[in-house]
Amino acid sequence: MYTMKNYVQVQSLEEAYELRTKNKNNVILGGNLWLKMTTRDLSTGIDLCNLGLDRIEEDESGYAIGCMCSLRDLETNVSMETEFGGAVKDALRHIVGVQFRNTATVGGSVFPRFGFSDVLTLLAALDCEVELFNKGRVSIKDFILDSPDHDILVKVMIKKDKRKVVYETLRMTETDFGVLNCAVSVKDGKYTIVLGAAPRKAKMVEVDPCSNWEDKEAKDAWLEEVVNQYIFGTNMRGSKEYRRAMAKVLITRAVDRLGV
C-alpha cells in the first residue's frame, strides 16, 4: 500500500517542476495505476490535470498529444486511425480493458519507459519526439535511451510523414502484456523496426529491406541480421530463445502486412 501526504493540482508546469525537483518523494501523477501498486510513502502528488494537457492537437504537420490524454483517447482518435492505418489502435486495444485505458495516461505510460510498453514500441516506429519541460524536445529514440529523471513529459509529438506502419504483438491471453511487441514502419524505402517487451525497453533499428523477400534463404538471412541487433531476455512470459524466434515471426508478419 502506498501513501501520499499531499495532493496539488498545479496551475503551471513551472509550479509542477519546482515541486517535483524539491523532493524526491514528490511525484507527477499519471493514471496512478502503477503508483498505487507500490509501497512508496510519497510526499506530494502533483496533478497536471488542470493544464489542458488531456487533448490531442492536430495540424497539417502532425499531432501533439498531451501527457494527460488517456490511452483510450489515443486509441479512438479518428484522424490517427486514418493516418497510421489502424496501428495506433492495434497497439493499444490489448491493454487490459477500456476502463483501464480510460484511466491510464499517455504521460504515465511513456515517461517511465517500461520494458513492456506497447505505446513506446509504437511511438518508436514513428517520426516522434517528446517535449520535456526542462530538456525541451527530444527524439523518441534518445528519450528511450535515457532513464526517467525529474523532468516532466509534457507532450508527445508525432509527425505526419506519410509513413506506413503496422503493429504486431504476441500475447498469451488477449489482454496480457506482450511476450513480444513489434512495430514496423516504412518510409522512403527504409524500415524502422521496433521490438518491445524483449523484455527490455523498446529498441528501434533502421534497416534496408530484404533483397528478395520471396526467396527463403535471402529472407532468413535478412531476418537473422535484423534480430542480431537486439538483445533478448528471459522472464516469466518467455525465454530469450523463444523471444528471438518470435521476433522473426512478428517482423515477417509486419513486413508482409506492409506489403513492400
Binding site: Y7, Q9, L29, G31, N32, L33, K36, G45, D47, C49, R72, V98, Q99, F100, N102, T103
Partner: peptide, 14 residues
Amino acid sequence: KPVLSCSTLAARAN
C-alpha cells in the same frame, strides 16, 4: 466515462 475507481484518486474527482 468508465474508469477504474481502484486506481483513480478521489481528489481527482473534485
